[in-house]
Simulated assay, not measured.
Amino acid sequence: MVVAIDFGTTYSSWACSMRHEYEENPTKIYVRQWIGGEHFSPKVPTTVLIRPDGKTLEAFGYEAEDRYADLVEEGKHKCWYYFEKFKMKIFNNKVRIIPM
């Protein structure tokens, strides 16, 4: 199996192909279709919702947006971690050397 992941600044997605299918027809790929509200798209917002423990992924994409909106509406969002469009923030111009 070959898998491609597009981890984008705003949107993300993935696609895959089985080797035998690729050999028969290289254009035959499977692309995840994401559903959120009225959206049906091969891409999903690069958004994550982390549980209050700070370690466990609760939801990704449209599901993270919807779940967080529900938490806000219920007034229960303050201890959750919600990140969107964060890709560029993981890059840093400083080079860090970590001793071994």
Rank of each mutant, 00 (worst) to 15 (best):
W14C: 10
G8K: 04
I29H: 12
Q33A: 09
A64N: 03
N92K: 13
S41R: 02
P99I: 04
H20D: 13
E24C: 07
E58D: 12
N25M: 01
I97G: 06
S13W: 00
A69S: 13
I5V: 15
R32T: 10
F86Y: 15
Y62F: 15
Y82F: 15
W14Q: 08
L57R: 02
G54T: 05
K28L: 12
K76T: 00
D6Y: 06
A15N: 06
Q33M: 15
G75C: 02
N93E: 11
I90A: 10
R67Q: 08
C16F: 14
P26M: 05
A69V: 05
N93Q: 11
M88D: 12
V31S: 06
F60E: 00
K78D: 12
G54K: 03
Y30N: 09
E73H: 14
R32F: 02
F86R: 09
L71P: 03
E65Q: 15
K87F: 01
M1G: 13
E58W: 00
L49C: 06
K89E: 11
K94G: 07
T9V: 08
P99G: 07
S41A: 07
E84N: 14
I97N: 10
Q33E: 14
D70H: 06
E24M: 13
Y11V: 09
S41G: 03
H20L: 07
L49E: 02
G54H: 06
P42Q: 01
